[in-house]
Design a protein around this nucleic acid. Sequence first.
DNA 1: GTGGTCTAGACCACA
DNA 2: GTGGTCTAGACCACG
Lengths: 131, 131, 131, 131
Amino acid sequence: MLLELDLESERPLYQQLVNAIIKGIATGELQPGESLPSVRMLAQDLGINMHTVNKAYHLLKADGFLHIHRQKGVTIASVLPSADRAFHEKTRADLEPIIAEAVSRGMAEDNFLALCRSLFAEMRAKRTAKK
Amino acid sequence: MLLELDLESERPLYQQLVNAIIKGIATGELQPGESLPSVRMLAQDLGINMHTVNKAYHLLKADGFLHIHRQKGVTIASVLPSADRAFHEKTRADLEPIIAEAVSRGMAEDNFLALCRSLFAEMRAKRTAKK
Amino acid sequence: MLLELDLESERPLYQQLVNAIIKGIATGELQPGESLPSVRMLAQDLGINMHTVNKAYHLLKADGFLHIHRQKGVTIASVLPSADRAFHEKTRADLEPIIAEAVSRGMAEDNFLALCRSLFAEMRAKRTAKK
Amino acid sequence: MLLELDLESERPLYQQLVNAIIKGIATGELQPGESLPSVRMLAQDLGINMHTVNKAYHLLKADGFLHIHRQKGVTIASVLPSADRAFHEKTRADLEPIIAEAVSRGMAEDNFLALCRSLFAEMRAKRTAKK
DNA sequence: GTGGTCTAGACCACA
DNA sequence: GTGGTCTAGACCACG
Protein backbone atom coordinates (compact mmCIF):
# COMPACT_ATOMS: atom_id res chain seq x y z
CA MET A 1 0.00 0.00 0.00
CA LEU A 2 1.22 3.43 -0.87
CA LEU A 3 1.15 6.01 1.87
CA GLU A 4 1.62 9.65 1.19
CA LEU A 5 2.12 12.15 3.97
CA ASP A 6 2.10 15.88 3.57
CA LEU A 7 4.76 17.22 5.89
CA GLU A 8 3.54 20.75 5.21
CA SER A 9 -0.05 20.12 6.18
CA GLU A 10 -1.47 21.52 9.39
CA ARG A 11 -3.00 18.15 10.02
CA PRO A 12 -0.76 16.17 12.36
CA LEU A 13 1.22 13.42 10.73
CA TYR A 14 -0.30 10.77 12.95
CA GLN A 15 -3.76 11.94 11.93
CA GLN A 16 -2.87 11.74 8.27
CA LEU A 17 -1.61 8.23 8.88
CA VAL A 18 -4.84 7.28 10.63
CA ASN A 19 -6.85 8.63 7.72
CA ALA A 20 -4.68 6.92 5.16
CA ILE A 21 -5.04 3.55 6.85
CA ILE A 22 -8.80 3.90 7.21
CA LYS A 23 -8.97 4.84 3.56
CA GLY A 24 -6.89 1.78 2.76
CA ILE A 25 -9.44 -0.34 4.58
CA ALA A 26 -12.31 1.39 2.82
CA THR A 27 -10.84 0.79 -0.60
CA GLY A 28 -9.94 -2.77 0.20
CA GLU A 29 -6.24 -2.19 -0.21
CA LEU A 30 -5.94 -3.33 3.37
CA GLN A 31 -7.88 -6.49 4.08
CA PRO A 32 -9.13 -7.58 7.50
CA GLY A 33 -6.49 -9.74 9.14
CA GLU A 34 -3.73 -8.36 6.96
CA SER A 35 -0.42 -7.42 8.55
CA LEU A 36 0.89 -3.90 8.67
CA PRO A 37 4.54 -2.92 8.78
CA SER A 38 6.14 -2.69 12.20
CA VAL A 39 6.22 0.77 13.74
CA ARG A 40 9.91 1.05 13.07
CA MET A 41 9.71 -0.14 9.50
CA LEU A 42 6.86 2.14 8.57
CA ALA A 43 8.50 5.05 10.31
CA GLN A 44 11.64 4.48 8.32
CA ASP A 45 9.76 4.09 5.06
CA LEU A 46 7.88 7.31 5.64
CA GLY A 47 10.89 9.11 6.98
CA ILE A 48 9.15 9.99 10.22
CA ASN A 49 9.59 9.07 13.84
CA MET A 50 8.65 5.73 15.31
CA HIS A 51 6.49 7.36 17.98
CA THR A 52 4.39 9.14 15.40
CA VAL A 53 3.53 5.85 13.75
CA ASN A 54 2.98 4.33 17.16
CA LYS A 55 0.44 7.00 18.06
CA ALA A 56 -1.47 6.45 14.84
CA TYR A 57 -1.51 2.70 15.40
CA HIS A 58 -2.77 3.09 18.95
CA LEU A 59 -5.54 5.45 17.94
CA LEU A 60 -6.69 2.93 15.35
CA LYS A 61 -6.43 0.19 17.95
CA ALA A 62 -8.60 2.21 20.34
CA ASP A 63 -11.21 2.51 17.59
CA GLY A 64 -11.06 -1.20 16.91
CA PHE A 65 -9.51 -1.03 13.46
CA LEU A 66 -6.22 -2.63 14.45
CA HIS A 67 -4.91 -5.34 16.68
CA ILE A 68 -1.51 -4.89 18.21
CA HIS A 69 0.37 -7.96 19.36
CA ARG A 70 3.54 -7.60 21.28
CA GLN A 71 5.31 -10.10 19.08
CA LYS A 72 3.30 -10.72 15.97
CA GLY A 73 3.12 -7.04 15.22
CA VAL A 74 0.18 -5.08 13.91
CA THR A 75 -2.77 -6.40 11.90
CA ILE A 76 -6.03 -5.06 10.55
CA ALA A 77 -8.85 -6.25 12.78
CA SER A 78 -10.61 -9.29 11.37
CA VAL A 79 -13.92 -7.82 12.48
CA LEU A 80 -14.07 -4.13 11.74
CA PRO A 81 -15.90 -1.73 14.06
CA SER A 82 -19.48 -0.94 13.13
CA ALA A 83 -21.27 2.30 12.39
CA ASP A 84 -22.75 2.57 15.84
CA ARG A 85 -24.60 5.43 17.35
CA ALA A 86 -21.47 7.16 18.60
CA PHE A 87 -20.09 7.10 15.09
CA HIS A 88 -23.29 8.56 13.69
CA GLU A 89 -23.11 11.43 16.11
CA LYS A 90 -19.45 12.08 15.48
CA THR A 91 -20.07 12.05 11.74
CA ARG A 92 -22.99 14.40 12.11
CA ALA A 93 -20.88 16.81 14.15
CA ASP A 94 -18.11 16.62 11.55
CA LEU A 95 -20.47 17.19 8.65
CA GLU A 96 -22.35 20.10 10.13
CA PRO A 97 -19.74 22.81 9.59
CA ILE A 98 -18.95 21.47 6.13
CA ILE A 99 -22.57 21.56 5.08
CA ALA A 100 -23.12 24.91 6.74
CA GLU A 101 -20.36 26.39 4.64
CA ALA A 102 -21.70 24.73 1.51
CA VAL A 103 -25.10 26.27 2.16
CA SER A 104 -23.60 29.65 2.90
CA ARG A 105 -21.76 29.57 -0.39
CA GLY A 106 -24.94 28.70 -2.21
CA MET A 107 -23.92 25.21 -3.17
CA ALA A 108 -26.95 23.20 -4.23
CA GLU A 109 -27.82 20.21 -2.06
CA ASP A 110 -27.74 17.99 -5.13
CA ASN A 111 -24.23 19.07 -5.98
CA PHE A 112 -23.11 18.25 -2.48
CA LEU A 113 -24.75 14.85 -2.56
CA ALA A 114 -23.20 14.20 -5.96
CA LEU A 115 -19.82 14.94 -4.46
CA CYS A 116 -20.45 12.45 -1.67
CA ARG A 117 -21.60 9.84 -4.18
CA SER A 118 -18.48 10.29 -6.24
CA LEU A 119 -16.34 9.71 -3.17
CA PHE A 120 -18.27 6.57 -2.34
CA ALA A 121 -17.85 5.46 -5.92
CA GLU A 122 -14.12 6.06 -5.69
CA MET A 123 -13.82 3.76 -2.71
CA ARG A 124 -15.88 1.10 -4.40
CA ALA A 125 -13.92 1.42 -7.62
CA LYS A 126 -10.65 0.37 -6.05
CA ARG A 127 -12.43 -2.27 -4.08
CA THR A 128 -13.79 -4.01 -7.16
CA ALA A 129 -10.61 -3.41 -9.13
CA LYS A 130 -8.88 -5.36 -6.39
CA LYS A 131 -11.04 -8.41 -6.84
CA MET B 1 -27.81 35.21 17.49
CA LEU B 2 -26.93 32.80 20.18
CA LEU B 3 -23.40 31.53 20.24
CA GLU B 4 -22.49 28.46 22.15
CA LEU B 5 -18.88 27.63 22.70
CA ASP B 6 -17.67 24.40 24.16
CA LEU B 7 -14.68 25.20 26.30
CA GLU B 8 -14.05 21.50 26.75
CA SER B 9 -13.91 20.74 23.07
CA GLU B 10 -10.67 19.85 21.37
CA ARG B 11 -11.62 22.20 18.58
CA PRO B 12 -9.99 25.60 19.09
CA LEU B 13 -12.35 28.33 20.23
CA TYR B 14 -11.63 30.51 17.21
CA GLN B 15 -12.56 27.59 14.95
CA GLN B 16 -15.82 27.05 16.82
CA LEU B 17 -16.54 30.73 16.39
CA VAL B 18 -15.87 30.57 12.67
CA ASN B 19 -18.14 27.56 12.35
CA ALA B 20 -20.87 29.15 14.42
CA ILE B 21 -20.90 32.29 12.29
CA ILE B 22 -20.93 30.36 9.04
CA LYS B 23 -23.76 28.27 10.41
CA GLY B 24 -25.57 31.48 11.33
CA ILE B 25 -25.25 32.62 7.74
CA ALA B 26 -26.40 29.26 6.45
CA THR B 27 -29.52 29.29 8.59
CA GLY B 28 -30.28 32.90 7.78
CA GLU B 29 -29.86 34.03 11.35
CA LEU B 30 -27.15 36.29 10.06
CA GLN B 31 -28.16 38.21 6.94
CA PRO B 32 -25.77 39.65 4.35
CA GLY B 33 -24.92 43.22 5.30
CA GLU B 34 -25.84 42.65 8.92
CA SER B 35 -23.58 44.01 11.62
CA LEU B 36 -21.69 41.84 14.05
CA PRO B 37 -20.63 42.80 17.55
CA SER B 38 -17.24 44.40 17.88
CA VAL B 39 -14.32 42.22 18.75
CA ARG B 40 -14.29 43.51 22.31
CA MET B 41 -18.04 43.21 22.82
CA LEU B 42 -18.24 39.65 21.55
CA ALA B 43 -15.18 38.63 23.51
CA GLN B 44 -16.76 40.00 26.67
CA ASP B 45 -20.12 38.40 25.96
CA LEU B 46 -18.54 35.04 25.42
CA GLY B 47 -16.07 35.44 28.24
CA ILE B 48 -13.15 34.68 26.01
CA ASN B 49 -10.02 36.45 24.90
CA MET B 50 -10.23 39.33 22.45
CA HIS B 51 -7.51 37.83 20.29
CA THR B 52 -9.59 34.71 19.83
CA VAL B 53 -12.52 36.65 18.41
CA ASN B 54 -10.14 38.68 16.32
CA LYS B 55 -8.61 35.59 14.80
CA ALA B 56 -12.01 34.19 13.91
CA TYR B 57 -13.12 37.45 12.31
CA HIS B 58 -10.00 37.69 10.22
CA LEU B 59 -10.26 34.14 9.02
CA LEU B 60 -13.82 34.83 7.92
CA LYS B 61 -12.68 38.02 6.26
CA ALA B 62 -9.99 36.11 4.37
CA ASP B 63 -12.69 33.74 3.12
CA GLY B 64 -14.90 36.64 2.07
CA PHE B 65 -17.66 36.12 4.60
CA LEU B 66 -16.99 39.32 6.53
CA HIS B 67 -16.03 42.90 5.92
CA ILE B 68 -13.99 44.64 8.54
CA HIS B 69 -14.05 48.43 8.51
CA ARG B 70 -12.02 50.36 10.95
CA GLN B 71 -14.94 52.68 11.61
CA LYS B 72 -18.14 50.87 10.71
CA GLY B 73 -17.12 47.72 12.47
CA VAL B 74 -17.73 44.20 11.30
CA THR B 75 -20.48 43.20 8.89
CA ILE B 76 -21.52 40.10 7.01
CA ALA B 77 -20.47 40.48 3.38
CA SER B 78 -23.33 41.68 1.19
CA VAL B 79 -22.17 39.29 -1.48
CA LEU B 80 -21.25 35.98 0.00
CA PRO B 81 -18.37 33.95 -1.43
CA SER B 82 -19.34 31.33 -3.96
CA ALA B 83 -18.76 27.62 -4.10
CA ASP B 84 -15.78 27.92 -6.38
CA ARG B 85 -13.39 25.28 -7.48
CA ALA B 86 -11.12 25.76 -4.50
CA PHE B 87 -14.05 25.23 -2.17
CA HIS B 88 -15.03 22.06 -3.99
CA GLU B 89 -11.58 20.67 -3.56
CA LYS B 90 -11.36 21.62 0.06
CA THR B 91 -14.75 20.07 0.70
CA ARG B 92 -13.74 16.95 -1.14
CA ALA B 93 -10.58 16.70 0.94
CA ASP B 94 -12.57 17.17 4.14
CA LEU B 95 -15.19 14.63 3.18
CA GLU B 96 -12.78 11.95 2.07
CA PRO B 97 -11.66 10.73 5.50
CA ILE B 98 -15.21 10.93 6.82
CA ILE B 99 -16.58 8.84 4.00
CA ALA B 100 -13.64 6.47 4.15
CA GLU B 101 -14.45 5.73 7.77
CA ALA B 102 -18.14 5.37 7.00
CA VAL B 103 -17.31 2.81 4.31
CA SER B 104 -14.87 0.98 6.59
CA ARG B 105 -17.54 0.70 9.22
CA GLY B 106 -19.97 -0.69 6.71
CA MET B 107 -22.31 2.30 6.71
CA ALA B 108 -24.58 2.19 3.68
CA GLU B 109 -24.18 5.01 1.18
CA ASP B 110 -27.89 5.77 1.44
CA ASN B 111 -27.66 6.18 5.18
CA PHE B 112 -24.83 8.60 4.76
CA LEU B 113 -26.68 10.61 2.13
CA ALA B 114 -29.75 10.65 4.34
CA LEU B 115 -27.64 12.11 7.12
CA CYS B 116 -26.42 14.84 4.78
CA ARG B 117 -29.96 15.58 3.64
CA SER B 118 -31.16 15.89 7.21
CA LEU B 119 -28.44 18.43 7.90
CA PHE B 120 -29.40 20.43 4.82
CA ALA B 121 -33.01 20.27 5.93
CA GLU B 122 -32.01 21.58 9.34
CA MET B 123 -30.38 24.63 7.83
CA ARG B 124 -33.38 25.28 5.59
CA ALA B 125 -35.80 24.84 8.45
CA LYS B 126 -34.46 27.76 10.42
CA ARG B 127 -34.16 29.77 7.27
CA THR B 128 -37.88 29.49 6.42
CA ALA B 129 -38.87 29.84 10.03
CA LYS B 130 -37.07 33.14 9.98
CA LYS B 131 -39.08 34.48 7.05
CA MET C 1 -1.58 15.54 47.40
CA LEU C 2 1.43 13.41 47.97
CA LEU C 3 2.50 11.16 45.17
CA GLU C 4 4.99 8.43 45.64
CA LEU C 5 6.46 6.55 42.74
CA ASP C 6 8.58 3.46 42.98
CA LEU C 7 11.22 3.76 40.31
CA GLU C 8 12.27 0.17 40.98
CA SER C 9 8.87 -1.36 40.51
CA GLU C 10 8.08 -3.43 37.44
CA ARG C 11 4.87 -1.51 37.14
CA PRO C 12 5.32 1.29 34.61
CA LEU C 13 5.60 4.74 36.10
CA TYR C 14 2.59 6.01 34.17
CA GLN C 15 0.54 3.13 35.56
CA GLN C 16 1.61 3.93 39.10
CA LEU C 17 0.60 7.51 38.48
CA VAL C 18 -2.79 6.44 37.18
CA ASN C 19 -3.33 4.30 40.25
CA ALA C 20 -2.18 7.03 42.59
CA ILE C 21 -4.59 9.55 41.09
CA ILE C 22 -7.51 7.14 41.18
CA LYS C 23 -6.67 6.40 44.78
CA GLY C 24 -6.58 10.13 45.45
CA ILE C 25 -10.08 10.39 44.03
CA ALA C 26 -11.25 7.41 46.07
CA THR C 27 -9.96 8.85 49.31
CA GLY C 28 -11.31 12.29 48.53
CA GLU C 29 -7.90 13.89 48.46
CA LEU C 30 -8.73 14.86 44.92
CA GLN C 31 -12.18 16.36 44.57
CA PRO C 32 -14.25 16.44 41.38
CA GLY C 33 -13.49 19.65 39.52
CA GLU C 34 -10.19 20.13 41.25
CA SER C 35 -7.16 21.15 39.25
CA LEU C 36 -4.12 18.97 38.81
CA PRO C 37 -0.58 20.19 38.22
CA SER C 38 0.43 20.74 34.62
CA VAL C 39 2.25 17.89 32.95
CA ARG C 40 5.52 19.75 33.15
CA MET C 41 5.13 20.78 36.77
CA LEU C 42 4.19 17.33 37.96
CA ALA C 43 6.95 15.75 35.92
CA GLN C 44 9.44 18.06 37.54
CA ASP C 45 8.07 17.46 41.03
CA LEU C 46 8.26 13.71 40.56
CA GLY C 47 11.58 13.83 38.79
CA ILE C 48 10.23 12.03 35.76
CA ASN C 49 9.66 12.90 32.16
CA MET C 50 6.80 15.06 30.93
CA HIS C 51 5.63 12.43 28.48
CA THR C 52 5.23 9.87 31.21
CA VAL C 53 2.90 12.19 33.10
CA ASN C 54 1.17 13.00 29.85
CA LYS C 55 0.47 9.34 29.17
CA ALA C 56 -1.02 8.85 32.62
CA TYR C 57 -3.22 11.91 32.21
CA HIS C 58 -4.47 10.74 28.83
CA LEU C 59 -5.29 7.27 30.08
CA LEU C 60 -7.32 8.82 32.88
CA LYS C 61 -8.97 11.12 30.38
CA ALA C 62 -9.90 8.15 28.20
CA ASP C 63 -11.54 6.53 31.23
CA GLY C 64 -13.42 9.72 32.04
CA PHE C 65 -11.61 10.58 35.26
CA LEU C 66 -9.93 13.70 33.95
CA HIS C 67 -10.65 16.59 31.66
CA ILE C 68 -7.80 18.06 29.69
CA HIS C 69 -8.16 21.61 28.45
CA ARG C 70 -5.59 23.01 26.13
CA GLN C 71 -5.24 26.14 28.22
CA LYS C 72 -6.85 25.62 31.56
CA GLY C 73 -4.84 22.55 32.17
CA VAL C 74 -6.00 19.33 33.76
CA THR C 75 -8.91 18.84 36.18
CA ILE C 76 -10.67 15.96 37.87
CA ALA C 77 -13.94 15.30 36.05
CA SER C 78 -16.90 16.87 37.80
CA VAL C 79 -18.91 13.75 37.04
CA LEU C 80 -16.88 10.66 37.66
CA PRO C 81 -17.32 7.56 35.49
CA SER C 82 -19.69 4.93 36.83
CA ALA C 83 -19.25 1.28 37.67
CA ASP C 84 -20.74 0.09 34.40
CA ARG C 85 -20.85 -3.40 33.03
CA ALA C 86 -17.48 -3.11 31.35
CA PHE C 87 -15.93 -2.14 34.66
CA HIS C 88 -17.54 -5.09 36.39
CA GLU C 89 -16.10 -7.47 33.85
CA LYS C 90 -12.67 -5.93 34.00
CA THR C 91 -12.73 -6.11 37.77
CA ARG C 92 -13.85 -9.72 37.68
CA ALA C 93 -11.02 -10.58 35.30
CA ASP C 94 -8.53 -8.80 37.55
CA LEU C 95 -9.78 -10.47 40.69
CA GLU C 96 -9.88 -13.99 39.33
CA PRO C 97 -6.16 -14.78 39.43
CA ILE C 98 -5.82 -13.09 42.81
CA ILE C 99 -8.61 -15.14 44.31
CA ALA C 100 -7.39 -18.29 42.60
CA GLU C 101 -4.04 -17.90 44.30
CA ALA C 102 -5.68 -17.15 47.62
CA VAL C 103 -7.69 -20.36 47.36
CA SER C 104 -4.65 -22.35 46.30
CA ARG C 105 -2.78 -21.12 49.32
CA GLY C 106 -5.63 -22.11 51.56
CA MET C 107 -6.63 -18.60 52.52
CA ALA C 108 -10.11 -18.59 54.01
CA GLU C 109 -12.77 -16.69 52.09
CA ASP C 110 -13.57 -14.70 55.21
CA ASN C 111 -9.99 -13.60 55.57
CA PHE C 112 -9.95 -12.42 51.99
CA LEU C 113 -13.21 -10.52 52.41
CA ALA C 114 -11.87 -8.97 55.60
CA LEU C 115 -8.87 -7.76 53.67
CA CYS C 116 -11.15 -6.15 51.10
CA ARG C 117 -13.23 -4.54 53.81
CA SER C 118 -10.16 -3.09 55.46
CA LEU C 119 -9.12 -1.54 52.17
CA PHE C 120 -12.58 -0.04 51.72
CA ALA C 121 -12.40 1.25 55.27
CA GLU C 122 -9.05 2.85 54.55
CA MET C 123 -10.46 4.81 51.64
CA ARG C 124 -13.45 5.90 53.67
CA ALA C 125 -11.26 6.87 56.62
CA LYS C 126 -9.38 9.51 54.70
CA ARG C 127 -12.57 10.60 53.06
CA THR C 128 -14.30 11.36 56.33
CA ALA C 129 -11.12 12.73 57.89
CA LYS C 130 -11.15 15.20 55.05
CA LYS C 131 -14.59 16.50 55.85
CA MET D 1 -6.89 -29.88 32.15
CA LEU D 2 -7.80 -27.49 29.44
CA LEU D 3 -5.60 -24.47 29.01
CA GLU D 4 -6.79 -21.51 27.08
CA LEU D 5 -4.36 -18.81 26.14
CA ASP D 6 -5.38 -15.50 24.66
CA LEU D 7 -2.73 -14.58 22.16
CA GLU D 8 -4.35 -11.18 21.76
CA SER D 9 -4.20 -10.33 25.42
CA GLU D 10 -1.84 -7.71 26.75
CA ARG D 11 -0.97 -10.09 29.54
CA PRO D 12 2.21 -12.02 28.70
CA LEU D 13 1.66 -15.63 27.75
CA TYR D 14 3.85 -16.92 30.56
CA GLN D 15 1.74 -14.97 33.04
CA GLN D 16 -1.46 -16.39 31.62
CA LEU D 17 0.04 -19.83 31.99
CA VAL D 18 0.97 -19.18 35.60
CA ASN D 19 -2.53 -17.95 36.34
CA ALA D 20 -4.13 -20.87 34.56
CA ILE D 21 -2.14 -23.40 36.54
CA ILE D 22 -2.85 -21.69 39.85
CA LYS D 23 -6.50 -21.59 38.93
CA GLY D 24 -6.30 -25.29 38.12
CA ILE D 25 -4.95 -25.92 41.60
CA ALA D 26 -7.61 -23.72 43.16
CA THR D 27 -10.42 -25.58 41.43
CA GLY D 28 -8.90 -28.95 42.18
CA GLU D 29 -8.38 -29.79 38.54
CA LEU D 30 -4.73 -30.11 39.39
CA GLN D 31 -4.08 -32.13 42.54
CA PRO D 32 -1.01 -31.90 44.76
CA GLY D 33 1.58 -34.40 43.57
CA GLU D 34 0.04 -34.61 40.12
CA SER D 35 2.32 -34.58 37.11
CA LEU D 36 2.35 -31.83 34.54
CA PRO D 37 3.34 -32.17 30.91
CA SER D 38 6.97 -31.59 30.12
CA VAL D 39 8.02 -28.17 28.95
CA ARG D 40 8.32 -29.37 25.39
CA MET D 41 5.01 -31.23 25.37
CA LEU D 42 3.02 -28.37 26.76
CA ALA D 43 4.69 -25.88 24.46
CA GLN D 44 3.82 -28.03 21.50
CA ASP D 45 0.24 -28.57 22.66
CA LEU D 46 -0.28 -24.86 23.12
CA GLY D 47 1.63 -23.93 20.02
CA ILE D 48 3.87 -21.56 21.89
CA ASN D 49 7.55 -21.22 22.54
CA MET D 50 9.30 -23.64 24.86
CA HIS D 51 10.94 -20.79 26.73
CA THR D 52 7.55 -19.37 27.58
CA VAL D 53 6.43 -22.57 29.27
CA ASN D 54 9.77 -22.83 30.97
CA LYS D 55 9.48 -19.37 32.41
CA ALA D 56 6.00 -20.06 33.76
CA TYR D 57 7.13 -23.32 35.36
CA HIS D 58 10.09 -21.69 37.04
CA LEU D 59 8.02 -18.84 38.39
CA LEU D 60 5.64 -21.36 39.89
CA LYS D 61 8.56 -23.29 41.28
CA ALA D 62 9.92 -20.15 42.91
CA ASP D 63 6.53 -19.65 44.57
CA GLY D 64 6.50 -23.24 45.78
CA PHE D 65 3.62 -24.46 43.63
CA LEU D 66 5.70 -26.79 41.50
CA HIS D 67 8.58 -29.19 41.86
CA ILE D 68 10.89 -29.61 38.95
CA HIS D 69 12.99 -32.77 38.84
CA ARG D 70 15.41 -33.32 36.08
CA GLN D 71 14.25 -36.92 35.70
CA LYS D 72 10.74 -37.18 37.06
CA GLY D 73 9.57 -34.07 35.31
CA VAL D 74 7.26 -31.46 36.68
CA THR D 75 4.75 -32.05 39.46
CA ILE D 76 2.40 -30.00 41.56
CA ALA D 77 3.92 -29.58 45.02
CA SER D 78 2.52 -32.08 47.49
CA VAL D 79 2.47 -29.37 50.09
CA LEU D 80 1.17 -26.16 48.64
CA PRO D 81 2.58 -22.80 49.77
CA SER D 82 0.63 -21.08 52.49
CA ALA D 83 -0.97 -17.69 52.71
CA ASP D 84 1.94 -16.20 54.57
CA ARG D 85 2.55 -12.62 55.45
CA ALA D 86 4.33 -11.86 52.20
CA PHE D 87 1.33 -13.15 50.29
CA HIS D 88 -1.01 -11.01 52.35
CA GLU D 89 0.98 -7.95 51.54
CA LYS D 90 1.24 -8.72 47.86
CA THR D 91 -2.49 -9.36 47.72
CA ARG D 92 -3.19 -6.15 49.54
CA ALA D 93 -0.99 -4.25 47.11
CA ASP D 94 -2.76 -5.87 44.18
CA LEU D 95 -6.22 -5.20 45.55
CA GLU D 96 -5.61 -1.58 46.45
CA PRO D 97 -5.79 -0.07 42.96
CA ILE D 98 -8.77 -2.26 42.07
CA ILE D 99 -10.70 -1.20 45.14
CA ALA D 100 -9.65 2.41 44.72
CA GLU D 101 -11.16 2.43 41.26
CA ALA D 102 -14.29 0.69 42.50
CA VAL D 103 -14.72 3.37 45.16
CA SER D 104 -14.03 6.16 42.66
CA ARG D 105 -16.71 4.80 40.39
CA GLY D 106 -19.15 4.68 43.24
CA MET D 107 -19.39 0.91 43.43
CA ALA D 108 -20.92 -0.19 46.71
CA GLU D 109 -18.72 -2.20 49.03
CA ASP D 110 -21.36 -4.91 49.20
CA ASN D 111 -21.41 -5.26 45.44
CA PHE D 112 -17.68 -5.66 45.42
CA LEU D 113 -17.74 -8.26 48.17
CA ALA D 114 -20.51 -10.10 46.37
CA LEU D 115 -18.31 -10.22 43.29
CA CYS D 116 -15.49 -11.71 45.35
CA ARG D 117 -17.82 -14.26 46.89
CA SER D 118 -19.09 -15.33 43.50
CA LEU D 119 -15.52 -15.93 42.38
CA PHE D 120 -14.81 -18.00 45.47
CA ALA D 121 -17.98 -19.94 44.83
CA GLU D 122 -16.87 -20.59 41.28
CA MET D 123 -13.64 -22.16 42.46
CA ARG D 124 -15.45 -24.28 45.03
CA ALA D 125 -18.05 -25.38 42.52
CA LYS D 126 -15.54 -27.11 40.29
CA ARG D 127 -13.77 -28.51 43.33
CA THR D 128 -16.85 -30.31 44.62
CA ALA D 129 -17.94 -31.31 41.16
CA LYS D 130 -14.62 -33.05 40.88
CA LYS D 131 -15.14 -35.18 43.94
C1' DG E 1 12.64 -8.52 15.80
C1' DT E 2 8.41 -6.89 17.94
C1' DG E 3 6.10 -3.43 20.74
C1' DG E 4 6.45 -1.07 25.59
C1' DT E 5 8.50 2.31 28.30
C1' DC E 6 11.14 6.25 29.43
C1' DT E 7 14.04 10.18 28.67
C1' DA E 8 15.45 14.71 26.66
C1' DG E 9 14.56 18.41 24.20
C1' DA E 10 12.41 21.11 20.45
C1' DC E 11 8.79 23.97 18.14
C1' DC E 12 3.95 25.21 17.71
C1' DA E 13 -1.07 26.45 18.60
C1' DC E 14 -3.94 28.39 21.77
C1' DA E 15 -5.67 31.87 24.75
C1' DG F 1 2.09 29.13 30.45
C1' DT F 2 -0.79 25.31 28.81
C1' DG F 3 -1.08 21.05 26.17
C1' DG F 4 -0.04 19.10 21.23
C1' DT F 5 3.22 17.36 18.16
C1' DC F 6 7.45 15.51 16.59
C1' DT F 7 12.13 13.89 16.83
C1' DA F 8 16.07 10.99 18.50
C1' DG F 9 17.70 7.50 20.91
C1' DA F 10 17.89 4.21 24.79
C1' DC F 11 16.77 -0.07 27.43
C1' DC F 12 13.55 -3.79 28.40
C1' DA F 13 10.00 -7.66 28.05
C1' DC F 14 8.39 -11.00 25.15
C1' DG F 15 8.63 -15.05 22.41
